[in-house]
Amino acid sequence: MRPYIPLGTYLLLMALAFVFPQYSKLIASIAFFMALGQAVNIFVGLTGYVDFGYVAFLAMGAYGLGVTVYYMTWLGILALPLGLLLGVSLAASLASLVGAIALRLRGAYFAIATIGVNEGVKHLIVGANIWGGGAGLILSSSMFQAFGRDTALFLANVGSTVLILATGLIAVVAMYLIQASKAGFALAAIRQDEDAAKVMGINPTKYKLMAFMTSASLSGLLGAAYFSLGNMQVFPENVFFVEYILDGLAVMFLGGAGTVTGPIIGGLIYFGVRYLVGIYLPGLQALVTALIVFLVVVFMPKGVVGTLRELIPSLRSWLP
């Protein structure tokens, strides 16, 4: 396997964000889709399970960093690493809670059981009026206080973009490590026939939970980088926006589920299509997402990367 394309893409975009800070937000929008697809892929692509409450993990990450900066401004710059850590921990904890209960269920039942998770957590925050409740958290003044004005603006612009790209990069490495390990074989077996995997001595719940928590942690990091750091605000309506899981699935299927490069290429294409639709058919993005997922799943179930690999076998090692 040659990791140059996935690693190179992320490193190149990082360099671009530094050199051309005026394009940082554009790069962040593209990278958000790539990293989201990558994170979703680690769970959905590797296990074959779908989680419709998935967006709650983005939200947990956003709130983790958000509440740290907002309520513990005195931490200064330390609020950033500690906030990210809290965000990732919240996402991982929610995943372990949901997973421990629901991952015993089979595919479709799991998907149904998780539908309410996103709305449930959202209503908990809004209804109990914690963490800013329905009004959300506006972080700009806290960030200016904690980090200093210039640093805060740099972090919100270039910093957030680099962190989104770093999330994608970590996801690439995580995917490699999982696929090269015993867990990768176990997950392949579970995906192809879970009952047969059980009688091979594999504990499916353990590996599904592992993939689920890894995926959720990465989404937590992504949510923190994109919403709290990048937008300097956390609004429940934004961070629990359920369509993000559809975006993640669209990117993953478009590029190729279960592959490392797929979500990167998928993210690029997906962003391009959404951008063009935004210009020529404004307001129809959601419809186009649905259409893309439908057409890809029906006509190109292995995605761009999977299909390319089949057509040109020598590309296989270049497109891991």
Partner: peptide, 24 residues
Amino acid sequence: LPPHRKVELGISLVPEGRRLFPEM
């Protein structure tokens, strides 16, 4: 014990309908 523990201890099953991993 759950199935994976029983396999470890020495019980193995050839399932009805074979249940191979078709893509492997």
